[in-house]
């Protein structure tokens, strides 16, 4: 389970001064559910997810991930999280197997468990054909599978996906979306950020719309359709963000 409590992040920018990337964001993600964080580029999605994965430290508020505070126990949080984004690249001079094993060891797995886990994952994701191939020789699809294997090797109860299909071709993107569904079916807590409406409609149980670092609205797709009297998620999104957008433009 993920419980964000007034999560905030401010950055110092030399030209623009202090910038509020995430402003007092609170939400809850339940096990066996997918929470979709929907927002335009620069809305604060990546910063929020990086804070949940303890890659960045919040400047205000906190979050509890699997019972661990992200500020107080970041290492324990990371041990319970699988983090995947298009920015999480592979070590190109390692083979696919070495890469996954490296992260298994960093997650404290002993060699016997690691071997069994790696064999299982490689079989399940159909990766045995390239397990000894160096990562710089893999196709985009193979790379994504290897990244998925990395997030799964320690069998974390929480999965964080930051725009995982960004820039991928349709077949590779489908591999990712079916993997996200599989995580939910296995009872994992899943949070997923995107700006692609169709992905949210297909995958998410709960949706949060974020703009300028503020979580403007959240609910199930049905709740949002009811509230804004719109069927199309894109129309709902535009209705939600337009007032804030207009105010910012005016400023």
């Amino acid at each position: 389970m993920i419980e964000a409590r007034g999560l905030s992040k401010r950055f110092q920018d030399k030209k623009r001064g202090e910038i509020s990337a995430v402003d007092n964001v609170s939400f809850t993600c339940q096990p066996g559910k997918i929470y979709g964080l929907l927002g335009a580029n620069g809305a604060g999605k990546t910063t929020t997810l990086r804070m949940l994965a303890t890659i960045l430290e919040p400047t205000g508020g906190t979050a509890i991930v699997c019972g661990h505070d992200i500020v107080e126990q970041p290492e324990k949080v990371r041990a319970n999280v699988g983090f995947l984004s298009t920015a999480t690249a592979l070590y190109r001079r390692l083979t696919a197997q070495e890469f996954v094993e490296y992260f298994g060891r960093l997650n404290g797995l002993d060699e016997a468990t690691l071997k069994k886990r790696v064999d299982d994952i490689f079989k399940r994701l159909d990766m045995n054909g390239f397990r000894d191939r160096r990562c710089d020789k893999l196709s985009t699809g193979m790379m994504q599978k290897t990244s998925i294997a990395r997030t799964l090797v320690h069998d974390p109860p929480v999965m964080i996906f930051d725009e995982p299909t960004n820039g991928l071709d349709i077949m590779t993107a489908r591999t990712i979306t079916s993997f996200i569904r599989e995580c939910r079916n296995n009872g994992k807590t899943v949070i997923f950020s995107t700006h692609i409406m169709s992905e949210v409609e297909k995958l998410c149980d709960n949706i949060g719309i974020i703009q300028s670092g503020k979580l403007l609205v959240e609910g199930t797709l049905a709740e949002l359709r009811d509230k804004y009297a719109e069927q199309d998620l894109e129309e709902i999104f535009v209705k939600v963000v337009t007032p804030l957008f207009a105010a910012e433009e005016a400023n």
């Binding site: 983090f83 999480t88 592979l90 070590y91 190109r92 960093l106 997650n107």
Partner: peptide, 12 residues
């Protein structure tokens, strides 16, 4: 190469 974020997401 974009691997910094990958390694920082591990519990080490």
């Amino acid at each position: 190469r974009g691997t910094m974020e990958t390694i920082l997401s591990s519990p080490i």
